[in-house]
């Protein structure tokens, strides 16, 4: 740890953190440029048959593909140095930073944040050991690539997630075209609720459109453009427009306060409507 230091970005403590949760490996300009060159030159795994007609998901690119898009790409992506101060050299701003996030309760395993890759395994070990602080690192598991099959849900599924052509089949999770662990689990919860209501002879109740649940469901079951459908993370763009209430001083948020105020309005509305949906007196719970 003579090179790296513990710090969360902007010292953010969060719900389960201390403000010093990530290990940061700094790079200067030369180290960064050499690293980018190594990524581009590194040997990639063989192109599998299914990859030929398969696009990348833009939110989750391998680092070597990002490096190929331009030398600055990674420095403005997973390797951005913002919000971090080198504990060993407080006056020297790192040109780029590789962050490591604790991966097990013991704190003996760390993973490299945002580092998806399809480099050959031997190349991964070789290149990643050039990262300052990782010269003697051992790698418990290396990166790889898998197929990601998903349905054209807006076309194939009804609003209750049933296959239109065979309604006894309901779909949930990543195959429905949501992206991310949380989103997949969320769609599983809805599919389970809908199937349970049906089995119990009740009418399944859709979550309000203003909740994150409802927003994701509406997106995959019809609102997304079926022609261009690609997996989607939850985001505020899926929520219906919201009226931003005035702040405590009775005035509307202005300037840089506007965006956080709008986000708070989205989330407050979502949680209020979720509670309403779940409350015993509501139609949903009958």
């Amino acid at each position: 740890m003579s090179v790296c230091w513990f710090q969360s970005r902007y010292d953010k403590e969060g719900p389960g953190g201390t403000g010093k949760d990530y290990i940061n490996c700094p790079m200067n300009r030369d180290e960064y440029n050499a690293f980018i060159d190594a990524l581009i030159a590194g040997e990639k795994t063989d192109f599998k048959e299914w990859e030929a007609s398969t696009p990348y998901f833009d939110g989750c690119l391998p680092i070597e593909v990002m490096a190929e898009r331009g030398p600055e790409t990674l420095r403005h992506g997973p390797m951005k140095p913002r919000g971090l101060t080198n504990a060993h050299k407080p006056d020297e701003k790192a040109y780029a930073v590789v962050q490591l996030r604790q991966d097990n309760a013991l704190g003996t395993l760390y993973n490299m944040v945002g580092f998806q890759t399809k480099l050959r395994h031997a190349e991964q070990t070789r290149i990643f050991r050039t990262i300052p602080g990782l010269r003697n690192a051992e790698f418990a598991r290396l990166g790889g690539l898998h197929r990601n099959t998903f349905l054209n849900s807006p076309r194939l599924l009804d609003p209750l997630m049933r296959l239109r052509s065979m309604p006894r089949l309901r779909f949930a999770g990543q195959i429905t075209g949501v992206e991310g662990y949380v989103e997949s689990a969320a769609m599983g919860m809805l599919a389970g609720r809908f199937a349970a209501a049906e089995r119990l002879g009740q009418t399944p109740q859709m979550p309000p459109r203003t909740t994150a649940m409802g927003a994701l469901l509406a997106h995959i079951t019809g609102e997304a453009n079926a022609e261009t459908f690609q997996p989607m993370n939850v985001n505020f763009g899926l929520f219906p427009p919201v009226e931003v209430p005035p702040g405590p001083d009775g005035r509307k948020a202005r300037g840089r306060d506007k965006v956080p105020a709008r986000k708070r309005a989205y989330t407050a509305r979502a949680l209020r409507d979720m509670d309403q949906w779940l409350s015993p007196g509501s139609k949903a719970a009958e």
Partner: peptide, 10 residues
């Protein structure tokens, strides 16, 4: 299909 990732680096 698109491409997903597995395995990360530890």
């Amino acid at each position: 299909r698109n491409r997903g990732y597995v395995g990360l680096l530890v």
